[in-house]
């Protein structure tokens, strides 16, 4: 890897947004391909942060500060990526299910998905099955991510799965579920496609789904 890309990755991991911006601009000025800067500098740095997060070597604040640095770099890169025709690695629709207003876990997963180069459509909290469905169709999403914190609201996830089935679109998306009370057996029982215990693993799984599409 080129030294400047390694530097971008390192400064990103340390959450140094201004430095990341500066280095991304410098890399562009040196004629490095924008997709290479994205993949080998920014996303590579977020991958390392994601792995460290899974291993409890870094914690949520470090991840969010790194994500801020990544977004600063992406802000510089974006026009170049668009003109070079570099496409997103996939699209995910995410939200906290109907009746549940908690969004900490949902926001973490969103950050991690963006850190994998996916486009994320954030529907917020208290999202109905119909809203998940409409957003997935409108955005041609490959992934639907449902979050719940409450034992009393997690059953709404089944309604999301059932709604996609009723509409005949169940096979066109992968439905991922997560949140404090959610387990693999619950995921299996409602017919969702994937449960992960943490945000970084959710992003890994989502990227794999998109790559398989």
């Amino acid at each position: 890897m080129m030294a400047i890309l390694e530097e971008i990755s390192t400064f990103l991991q340390n959450g140094r947004a201004p430095k990341v911006k500066e280095l991304v601009q410098q890399a562009l000025d040196e004629g490095i391909d924008p997709a290479t800067i994205l993949n080998e500098g920014l996303l590579s740095g977020m991958d390392i942060i994601g792995e460290k997060f899974k291993n409890n070597e870094v914690f949520v604040p470090e991840v969010l500060i790194a994500a801020r640095a990544m977004n600063a770099g992406v802000g510089i890169l974006k026009p170049y990526l668009v003109s070079a025709g570099v496409e997103s690695k996939g699209t995910a629709v995410i939200g906290t299910v109907k009746g549940d207003l908690h969004d900490i876990g949902k926001n973490l997963v969103k950050m991690m998905l963006e850190g994998k180069g996916l486009t994320v459509v954030d529907l917020g909290v208290d999202v109905s099955a119909e809203q998940f469905y409409n957003a997935a169709v409108e955005n041609n999403a490959q992934i639907v991510c449902c979050s719940a914190l409450l034992t009393t609201t997690m059953n709404e996830m089944k309604n999301v799965v059932d709604y996609f089935t009723e509409k005949g679109k169940r096979d066109s998306v992968k439905i991922m579920v997560g949140g404090a009370p959610v387990t693999q057996s619950f995921c299996d029982s409602i017919g969702a496609d994937c449960y992960t215990a943490d945000a970084a693993s959710a992003a890994d799984a989502a990227l794999k789904f998109c790559q398989a599409c």
Binding site: F59, I104, G105, A180, A197
Partner: peptide, 11 residues
């Protein structure tokens, strides 16, 4: 969180 503390032990 279920996975561990929000802040790192140092924080």
């Amino acid at each position: 969180f279920n996975a561990g503390p929000f802040l790192s032990p140092a924080m």
